[in-house]
Simulated scan of single mutants.
Amino acid sequence: MTTIRPVGAEAAPALLKIVRAAFSTRPVLDPPADALRDTEESLAKALANGGGLVASYDVSAGPENDRDVGALVLDPQGSTLWLRRVGVLPEVRDHGVATMLVEEALARAEGYDEVAVLAREELPRTSRFWREHGFVPVGAARPYVELRRPAPRTYDAPDADSMREIGATLAARLRPGDVVVLAGELGAGKTTFTQGLGAGLEVRGDVTSPTFVISRVHPALGDGPPLVHVDGFRLGGVAELDDLDLDTSLDEAVTVIEWGEGIAEGLADDRVEVRIDRALADDAARQDGLDPRRVRIAPVGRRWLGTPGSSA
């Protein structure tokens, strides 16, 4: 099992060991990777500024057997959180360790507008990894490519009214052609969130679950876009969305897809991913009438870069 822990300057020796092992096995570059010039002192200074993350892999039972296998440095600069020295040991590559590190870094990007990273032009696989995680190239200064993505935002929804309010706030940022992908367990509040979107967009009709009809179109009452509400659980793939008998063009509507995880990447490069989770894992607390939700809104794609308040 892999775990991620935050670290500070005290972890510079461990981080240096990971960075050297990770970067020294990459193809030879000219000029060499900056990471290969790191020292304990330089990493300690960087970690003292913004901290970092270390991934540990449990090679056998018991925490005493955990082995540090990946790391990154968090480098805050104004409204941007930079990710530096992202590396994992060669023997655990393609095991999801880098993805776990990046997801944890994104979770720590609250309060920032964007998250950024530099990738070497000569390493297209590395750039592809970042694009698969929602980062888009915004410029190049050889030998580097700069990639960015909007920082996610997390909101607490103690009740259904709060959930609708969060949806309505996001609606104010949406425009025709936008896609919103909703994820969360059964009963998490995806339809309630969509009701808030519909109210914010000022569309006609009661927003209910599309489970039995696969999709439902809510025309706009005014000059705004209509809302297309889709059940992604019963949608076989992206191609089937185009085959739906809709009386509106998706380019002219805001499309909301419940259970959309897994097809979002092929549906739209620019999208808003919304995940709704229960904030309390304690069943006893829920029996007392407390069942709040936590809503994570993560815009993805060039459309949302540099957009004030893009995360609602």
Rank of each mutant, 00 (worst) to 15 (best):
T3A: 14
G50Y: 00
A12S: 06
Y112I: 01
S127V: 12
E121N: 07
F212H: 10
A157Q: 03
V300R: 07
V254H: 02
T80H: 04
G198S: 02
A281T: 11
E185H: 12
G139R: 02
P150C: 03
R294F: 11
A105P: 00
A71M: 06
L241Q: 06
A55Q: 04
T3E: 14
T191S: 06
D223S: 14
G50A: 06
K45V: 15
V86M: 12
V7Y: 00
T248W: 09
D113G: 08
L305N: 06
I4D: 03
P31Q: 06
D38H: 09
R20L: 15
P137D: 07
R85V: 04
A12R: 03
R125Q: 14
S310C: 15
R84D: 03
L118M: 13
F212Q: 08
G184V: 02
L182V: 10
G189D: 03
A268M: 08
S127K: 09
A171W: 03
F129K: 04
R108M: 00
D242K: 14
G205V: 03
S209C: 09
H133A: 09
G78F: 01
S162F: 01
E103P: 03
D66Y: 02
G50S: 04
R142N: 13
L186N: 09
V19H: 08
A285M: 11
L43T: 01
L267D: 04
D159N: 01
